[in-house]
Design a protein around this nucleic acid. Sequence first.
DNA 1: ACCTGAACACCGTTCAAGT
DNA 2: ACCTGAACACCGTTCAAGT
Lengths: 199, 199
Amino acid sequence: MARRSEHSLEEIKAMVLDAAETIVIEEGFSALKARNIAREIGYTVGSIYMVFTNMADLILHINARTLDAIAAQLEQAQDGSAEESIETLTLTYLSYARQHFDRWRTVFDYRRLDSAEIPGWYQEKIDSVFAPVEARFAQLTPELTDADRKRAARALWCGVHGICVLSLTEPQTKADIKEIEATIVLLVRNFMRGWVAHA
Amino acid sequence: MARRSEHSLEEIKAMVLDAAETIVIEEGFSALKARNIAREIGYTVGSIYMVFTNMADLILHINARTLDAIAAQLEQAQDGSAEESIETLTLTYLSYARQHFDRWRTVFDYRRLDSAEIPGWYQEKIDSVFAPVEARFAQLTPELTDADRKRAARALWCGVHGICVLSLTEPQTKADIKEIEATIVLLVRNFMRGWVAHA
DNA sequence: ACCTGAACACCGTTCAAGT
DNA sequence: ACCTGAACACCGTTCAAGT
């Protein structure tokens, strides 16, 4: 049992968050229980409520980290022409969702279970996932308005996300993955072909 | 309190399902509790387990009804050319999701919370939601293989679903809805333009 | 045979009490 | 001031006991 004052509140908050993230990764979202987290960090359940208002608040912070990780991966997938890059970005997104399935799924499974407001700092993290593809659309069709380009980026990105959501159910064979990739590429290429033909 | 033998097991099963569906519609998924259902039909909690193996089983049957309702709505949206019809189908899907938000959301929020197998009869209901748009793609590009057309239908339909999933958070203003519709139409038209140009 | 309802094993969350 | 841990209000699920 951890001694009093052995850690600052900030340290405990980080320990809770780390332990919670590890549980989601290793045992899945359904294993994320206050008592499990407490045992993992050597404190009792009550301690969690010193540093997070409730479990929903904790999950929001887990998801914030996941969004950061996705955004970081996407930043490394910006080579090539705008159209090539958009395709790479979408396949990178699929790749992240596959390799970090439990964390990825928690972001969307736990959205709006409560009717609590989404904080501004969290919305910014969501926006930063959309940002790279928006930037590529801006590059591709600079003559359009910002609203038009954002809508196009959103349509395509949400579309790719929809394919991931409905296709990723564990376990997947390599053939499954190839098929999912082919479906995403099909969506992206046809959309882009239609987009550049019209713009 | 209901008397013994007042209803057959089949009747009780229907009463449980009706009550559960009503609770989801009127109070949302979070209000769906075994004790609430029991109170509503005048039986005790134990009775629910006479007719459903557990809550997951019951929710599967609620979702089955929702999928039937979506398929029924889509069947009424098949007028016009293949391309017009595809656009109408997607907007009909959005319309259903909006008007029956809690039921629609339950289908996807509760997918794979347990790792139970999806029964064959349930998968058929999912397929019947994809069927109308697949049929339109078959009409549009009969020269392609069945697998190619199915992939295209799946890419577009999953894409539209993704826009709905990420855009529908209560409450929406009329302006929000117009924007969501515009995003869907943008996805569909660009995809179809790219598709017919290439096929 | 049908149905009850008390009981069990879990949950998240609180808060008076310890050091 | 920090942390405990017993307690509370809920859950889903079971099953011996009633009629």
